[in-house]
Computed example of a mutant assay.
Amino acid sequence: MILTELKPGDKGKITDVSKVTALVQSRLLDFGVLEGKEVCYKYALPFGGPCMLEACGQCIGIRRKEAMCIQVEQS
């Protein structure tokens, strides 16, 4: 399942980030978002806006296009 398929408030474990660009992977790594970590999907802004995630105790906004490339397992 992809990250954007989670409902607001759902938690998921990241299984694959290889489909996003190396720059985005590096940025996510800086925030502690990597394979095996649990994230909480907070919400997505309307009209194709960014998605808000909570990971490692901080809220992170990522583009919906990039969130659609991240695979998760719902937990």
Results as ranks from 00 to 15, higher is better:
residue 2 I to D: 10
residue 2 I to W: 00
residue 3 L to I: 09
residue 3 L to F: 04
residue 3 L to K: 05
residue 3 L to N: 06
residue 4 T to H: 06
residue 4 T to E: 05
residue 4 T to S: 09
residue 4 T to K: 00
residue 5 E to T: 08
residue 5 E to V: 04
residue 5 E to N: 06
residue 5 E to L: 03
residue 6 L to N: 08
residue 8 P to C: 03
residue 8 P to F: 05
residue 8 P to T: 09
residue 9 G to N: 08
residue 9 G to F: 03
residue 11 K to Y: 00
residue 11 K to F: 01
residue 11 K to D: 00
residue 12 G to D: 08
residue 13 K to L: 07
residue 14 I to C: 02
residue 15 T to V: 13
residue 17 V to W: 00
residue 20 V to A: 05
residue 20 V to R: 04
residue 21 T to I: 02
residue 22 A to M: 06
residue 22 A to I: 13
residue 23 L to R: 13
residue 23 L to E: 07
residue 25 Q to E: 12
residue 25 Q to G: 09
residue 25 Q to K: 13
residue 26 S to I: 01
residue 26 S to A: 10
residue 26 S to H: 10
residue 26 S to P: 00
residue 26 S to R: 13
residue 26 S to D: 13
residue 26 S to K: 11
residue 27 R to S: 12
residue 27 R to Q: 13
residue 28 L to F: 04
residue 30 D to L: 01
residue 31 F to E: 15
residue 32 G to D: 05
residue 33 V to C: 07
residue 34 L to D: 11
residue 35 E to R: 15
residue 36 G to F: 07
residue 38 E to Q: 13
residue 39 V to C: 01
residue 39 V to D: 01
residue 40 C to E: 13
residue 40 C to L: 10
residue 41 Y to K: 02
residue 41 Y to T: 10
residue 42 K to F: 00
residue 42 K to E: 14
residue 43 Y to Q: 12
residue 44 A to Y: 04
residue 44 A to S: 15
residue 46 P to W: 00
residue 46 P to C: 01
residue 47 F to C: 03
residue 47 F to N: 14
residue 47 F to D: 15
residue 48 G to D: 09
residue 49 G to T: 12
residue 50 P to R: 09
residue 52 M to W: 01
residue 52 M to S: 14
residue 53 L to G: 07
residue 53 L to C: 09
residue 53 L to A: 07
residue 55 A to Q: 04
residue 55 A to I: 12
residue 57 G to I: 10
residue 58 Q to N: 12
residue 58 Q to V: 15
residue 59 C to K: 12
residue 59 C to N: 14
residue 59 C to W: 02
residue 60 I to D: 03
residue 60 I to Q: 01
residue 61 G to K: 11
residue 61 G to Q: 12
residue 62 I to P: 06
residue 63 R to H: 13
residue 63 R to Y: 03
residue 63 R to F: 03
residue 65 K to M: 07
residue 66 E to L: 05
residue 67 A to C: 10
residue 67 A to F: 06
residue 68 M to F: 03
residue 69 C to E: 13
residue 69 C to Q: 15
residue 70 I to G: 07
residue 70 I to V: 14
residue 72 V to G: 07
residue 72 V to A: 04
residue 72 V to S: 04
residue 73 E to C: 07
residue 74 Q to P: 13
residue 75 S to Q: 10
